[in-house]
Simulated assay, not measured.
Amino acid sequence: MDGPAHGVLTGMVTMGRTMVPAGEGRAVRVGAGRRVRVVDVEGGQVGDLFAFAADDPREHLSAAHTRSATSRLFPQVGESFVTDRRRPILTLAGDTSPGSHDMLIAACDPARYEGLGAPGHASCAGNLESALAGMGLSAAVVPQPVNVFMRIPVEASGRLRWLSAESRPGDAITFEAVMDCVVVLSACPQDLAGINGDGPTPMAMDVL
Rank of each mutant, 00 (worst) to 15 (best):
D2M: 07
L128D: 05
D171A: 04
G99R: 00
E59K: 11
G197A: 12
Q76G: 15
M103Y: 10
A107G: 08
W162Y: 14
S123E: 06
V30Q: 04
M19Q: 07
L192C: 01
Q76N: 12
R58L: 06
M179A: 14
G117E: 00
S167A: 05
R26Y: 01
Q144H: 15
R29E: 04
S80L: 03
I173A: 02
I195A: 02
V148N: 05
A177M: 06
N196I: 06
Q45W: 01
M135Q: 14
R26P: 02
Q45T: 07
N147T: 11
R159C: 12
V39A: 01
H121S: 14
V13R: 15
T18M: 11
L61I: 11
C188M: 07
G44F: 00
G7I: 09
A133S: 15
E42F: 06
D198A: 15
V141P: 00
L92H: 13
E129T: 11
S130E: 12
V183R: 04
D2T: 12
M203D: 09
H65Q: 08
F81L: 08
C188S: 14
M203T: 10
L185V: 02
I195G: 03
V141C: 10
G3E: 04
D191S: 14
G197W: 04
A139F: 08
R159A: 13
P57E: 09
G99A: 03
T66Q: 01
V20A: 02
R161K: 13
R112A: 11
A133N: 15
R85E: 07
L137D: 11
R26M: 10
V36K: 08
V28T: 10
H101C: 09
A53P: 03
P75G: 13
A204Y: 05
S157P: 02
G33I: 03
Q190R: 10
A172M: 00
G158C: 11
M1N: 04
P57G: 04
V184I: 10
A27Y: 04
R159L: 15
E114F: 00
G117N: 00
C124H: 15
E176R: 14
P75T: 11
D95K: 08
A93M: 03
G31D: 13
P88A: 14
S123Q: 06
L137M: 10
R17S: 05
G23T: 06
R161Y: 07
G99V: 07
H101F: 08
A122N: 05
R85G: 04
